[in-house]
Amino acid sequence: MDKQSTTITRRVWAFLNRDVRSFFPSNASPAEVSETHTAYTSRPIATCSSVDLRHLRVIEYRRALLNWRDAYIYELNNTASSRKAGFANSIDKELRNRSLRRKLFARPANEVLKSEFDYVIRSPLSTIAERATTSLQKIVIGWGVEHRVPSNVIHSFIDPSLTCIATVKFTPNKKTEILTTIDAKVIQRLVEAYSTHLCRLTDELKDKELK
C-alpha cells in the first residue's frame, strides 16, 4: 500500500471506531467539544464621553424642519376650512344672481364654479405651498445644508376642471351635493397632496449632512 491509501484507511478505521454516543451533542466527549470558556469578569467601564456634541445641531435642525412642516400643514388645513365657507357663500351669491333663463336651463356646476373655485380655494392653497417651499429653502440655507428645494412640483393637478361635478346641474337644490363632492374629491385631496409633499420634503432633508 502506498502512503496515501494508508492514511485513508487509518481515517476510515478511526471513524468506524467512534463511539456512537458522540453523535449526540449531550454526550459529546470533552475532546469533541469546543474548548472555549467564557470568563464573566467585570470590565472597566469607560469614563470618557461617548456623546457627539455635533449631534445637538442635528436635533435642532430636525426640530426646525418639523416645526416648518407642522406650521404649514396646519395653515393649509385652516385655510381650506375657512375658504370652504367662503366658497359656499360664493355659490349662494351666484345662485341668487341667476337670470330666469339660466335658472331654467342650468349649466353644469363645474362650468359655473371653476374660476371661482380656483380663485377662492385652489389659488390660496397653492400660494401657501409655494410660500412653504421658499421658507424651507431659507431654513436649508441657514443650516448650511447643500440641497435645492424643488419649487415646481407642488402645482396640483387634482381635477383642474372640476369634472367631479360635471354631471351636476348648477341649481339651488344641488348646492349641498356640489359642496360635499368638491370637498371630498378636490379640497381634501389638494390639502392631502400638499401635506404629503411637505412631509416628503422633510423626510428627504432630515438626514442631510450639516456643514
Binding site: 436635533i59 426640530r63 418639523l66 412642516r69 407642522d70 400643514i73 396646519y74 388645513n77 385652516n78 401635506s195
Partner: peptide, 27 residues
C-alpha cells in the same frame, strides 16, 4: 417624527398642541 397636527382625529388646533408636545418630548 411622522406625526403632524392633522394626523389625529382631533380639531387642528388640538392636533397642533399634540404635535408640539410630542416634539418637546422627543427633544
Amino acid at each position: 417624527g411622522p406625526l403632524t397636527p392633522v394626523s389625529f382625529d382631533a380639531r387642528p388646533s388640538d392636533g397642533a398642541i399634540a404635535s408640539e408636545t410630542i416634539k418637546d418630548i422627543t427633544d
